[in-house]
Computed example of a mutant assay.
Amino acid sequence: MVPRRGALRLRHPSGCELLLDRETLELPSDAQQLVVLLPADRETVRAVDRLGDRTPGRLRAV
């Protein structure tokens, strides 16, 4: 089942709250879909940076 598009609010085990936008990319040649989760606000961007202990503002595949 493909998740709905729109905002998804999660509470990470570390205690921080994450607000993620769900986007669905359709791949018609393969009849497949790819669901992408993107930070929906600056607080989530900062929380993800802290959780991953990485350079702030850089994207990475999860």
Rank of each mutant, 00 (worst) to 15 (best):
G6M: 02
R54S: 13
A47C: 14
D21R: 06
V35H: 04
R42I: 11
R4N: 06
P39S: 08
G15A: 13
V35A: 03
V36H: 05
E17C: 05
E26M: 09
P39Q: 07
D49W: 05
D53W: 02
G52I: 02
R11I: 13
E26R: 10
L27Y: 05
P3S: 04
L19S: 00
R22T: 09
V62H: 13
L20F: 06
A47N: 04
R50Q: 15
D49T: 14
V35C: 05
R58C: 02
S29Q: 12
R58S: 02
L27G: 00
S29V: 14
S14I: 06
R11E: 14
A7S: 09
R46F: 03
L10K: 05
G6N: 02
V45E: 09
R54H: 12
R5C: 09
A47Q: 01
Q32V: 04
L51F: 10
A7N: 06
E43I: 03
M1V: 09
A31M: 12
R11V: 14
E17V: 11
P39N: 07
P28S: 05
P56N: 04
A61L: 15
S14P: 01
E17I: 07
A7L: 15
P3N: 03
V45A: 04
H12E: 08
P56Y: 04
D49E: 14
M1D: 07
R5W: 03
E17S: 07
L25I: 09
T24M: 12
E23W: 09
A61E: 12
P13L: 15
R11F: 05
E43C: 04
L20W: 04
P39Y: 08
E17G: 07
L18Q: 01
V45R: 07
L8P: 01
L27H: 05
P13S: 14
T24N: 10
M1A: 12
G52A: 11
R54P: 01
E43M: 07
D41Y: 04
L37K: 04
D30A: 14
G52R: 12
L51A: 12
L25P: 00
R5S: 10
C16Y: 05
L10M: 14
D53K: 06
R60C: 01
E23Q: 10
Q32M: 11
T55I: 14
L37M: 13
L25N: 01
A31H: 13
V2F: 11
R46E: 11
A61I: 15
P28D: 03
R58T: 08
R9W: 06
L27Q: 04
R50L: 15
V36T: 05
L59P: 09
R5M: 12
T44E: 00
H12S: 11
P28E: 06
T55Y: 13
R54L: 13
L18T: 00
V45N: 01
P28K: 04
G15T: 12
T44V: 02
S29I: 06
Q32G: 03
